[in-house]
Amino acid sequence: MDYLKFTPELAHDWKNAISATEKEIYLLKRVTDSMNRSQLESKLWIVNELSELMLFPKSVVLLGGWYANFMVPLLFQHGVSYITNFDLDPDVKKISYKFNKSRKDDDTYKCYLTNVMFEPVFNIKYKSKPDMIINTSCEHMFPMTRFKKLNRGFFNDVVYVLQSTNEDKYEDHINCVSGPEELAEQAEFVDVMYSGTKTLDNGMERFMVIGR
C-alpha cells in the first residue's frame, strides 16, 4: 500500500477536525504535527508489513494512538472491522472522533481516555475481542510488560505491532531503545514475526517489531 485513500467522506471529516482547532489555537500545532510525512510513512509501514505477513486482524487496539487520523483509515483499508484507541491526552478523544467521525457514527471506532500503563483495558466491552495491539508510541511509555501484567494475560495471544526509536533528544521520549531487538526484548516476545528499521523523512530512525 503506497497511499491513504482520501475519500470525500474522509475529506469532510478531516476538514471538521482541523476546523475544531480554531477555538483552541494550541491544538493546531499538535494536529498538524500528527499529519506530517513521517507520521504517514510510519503508519503505511505497518499495513505494508501486515500484508506481507498475511495478517488481517478483525479487531485492533491502539495504545497511545493519538488522533489516529492516518492509522484508522489505513487499517480499515486493510480490512479491519473494529478499532479501539486508548490515549491519556484529554484532547485526543474529541479530535480523533472528528477525524474519524464516520467510523465513530457506525460504531466501529471507539476512543477512551486511559493511561494504559496505570489502568487495565481488558474489561472494556469490545465489539469483537481484539486480535491485534498496535503501539506506535513505545518511546513515550514504560515497557510493554507492564501493559501485559495489568491486563492479566487477556492479551497474551494477540499479535503486537510495536514502534519506537533511539532518538532521545526529546523530553517525552522516556523509553528509547537501541534497535528493534531491544524493543522485542522489552515486550518479551517469544515469536518475532517481523523486525525492521526505517529512516523517516524527519531523519528519525524508527524501529518496528511484530510478534507475540
Partner: peptide
C-alpha cells in the same frame, strides 16, 4: 493553559 494542554502528553 494552552501550553499546559499542548504539552500534557509530553510530561512537561
Amino acid at each position: 493553559i494552552g501550553t499546559v494542554k499542548k504539552n500534557y502528553a509530553k510530561y512537561i
